[in-house]
């Protein structure tokens, strides 16, 4: 895994060395964020911000606060400001196709990150490889639990791309272990730790013999870990997360608690990748329709290195 990452980084380095000539085409980039509460999105934003600064590109960032209507208005305003490329992370499950259409009307590149609207694809879609990584996280926690027992899943926002794919991957791991029984599933609205806490608390109440919890995001897993502590069940329950948030990695690095593993996404890398793709599309080059930087399975023993330097 680490080797793969290094190769990817090297590839990016070559790309960025070559890009200044092309960057003349893209002077202003618009970035539409669904929210700035989740660390996952903040990391992407940081990646884009740092990279555009390096390249001398002007960046406009807007935050939709999870409201699709707000996002459409913000994208309209971006178009008025004359951006040359549009990096789009749809807010909410409806993943409105309207912003993509607005950008198409302006004839500028559309780069989707993490989520892709139905029926209106961008020029490229950059998202972590969710199915395989989720499979690995679930496989890991099931193994740690001895391959059997009651399990629960805390989903993200219903219907969003990551929610669907992460469930798909985890389900595969569950199906491979017939002794694992999936007893509870609930959806969160905001992927937030307080939701994770409340949902896990109810699950533990209903299933006192619960052994395994998969939180589809680190924030949810962190909330679940707290709820397990409060219930005094931290010795019995094993929790897996996803994303590799800074806060989660710091928690994991201590290796002392029910939450023991996550899949660290290369979020900053995704941001850089998005900017590069935008420059390429604008210059008329071809880019892959789907780009999938791998997430790295991060058991708590490995977490320290990512705290120091997030991919």
């Amino acid at each position: 895994m680490n080797i793969k990452l290094r190769i990817a980084a090297a590839a990016i380095a070559t790309l960025s060395a070559a890009s200044p000539a092309l960057a003349a085409e893209v002077k202003k980039v618009g970035l539409a964020m669904p929210n700035l509460q989740a660390d996952f999105f903040n990391q992407i934003k940081l990646g884009v911000e740092n990279y555009t600064k390096e390249l001398g590109i002007e960046l406009i960032v807007v935050d939709a606060k999870n409201d699709t209507a707000t996002q459409v208005s913000q994208v309209q305003d971006m178009m008025t400001q004359g951006i040359d490329a549009f990096i789009y992370i749809p807010a909410g499950a409806a993943a409105a196709a309207v912003p993509t259409r607005l950008a198409r009307a302006e004839g500028i590149p559309v780069i989707n990150v993490d989520r892709q609207p139905d029926g209106a694809p961008g020029d490229t879609f950059i998202a972590g490889e969710s199915v395989e990584s989720a499979y690995q996280v679930c496989k890991y926690i099931i193994e740690k639990a001895g391959g059997k027992g009651k399990m629960a899943i805390i989903h993200g926002q219903k219907g969003t791309t990551p929610e669907v794919l992460r469930f798909e991957g985890c389900k595969r791991a569950i199906d491979e272990n017939p002794d694992v029984e999936l007893v509870a599933q609930q959806y969160s609205q905001m992927w937030s730790p307080d939701e994770g806490f409340n949902i896990a608390q109810n699950m533990l109440q209903a299933n006192p013999d619960l052994k395994i919890i998969f939180g589809q995001a680190d924030a949810l897993a962190m909330g679940a870990a707290k709820a397990t502590d409060v219930a005094g069940m931290s010795d019995q329950v094993i929790i897996g997360g996803y994303d590799g948030d800074i806060a989660a990695l710091e928690y994991l690095a201590k290796c002392d608690g029910p939450f023991i593993v996550t899949a660290t996404q290369s979020t900053q890398l995704m941001g850089r990748l998005a900017v590069d793709s935008a420059i390429k599309v604008a210059a008329g080059e071809k880019v892959e329709e789907r780009q999938t930087p791998n997430a790295v399975l991060t058991p708590c023993e490995d977490a320290r290195q990512y705290v120091e330097k997030h991919p």
Binding site: N66, D67, T68, A69, V72, G92, A93, A94, A95, A96, A97, V98, Q189
Partner: peptide, 12 residues
């Protein structure tokens, strides 16, 4: 009409 979609979390 504006969003070309509806979702129950609208209008919070």
């Amino acid at each position: 009409a504006r969003l070309d979609s509806v979702q129950p979390s609208s209008g919070v």
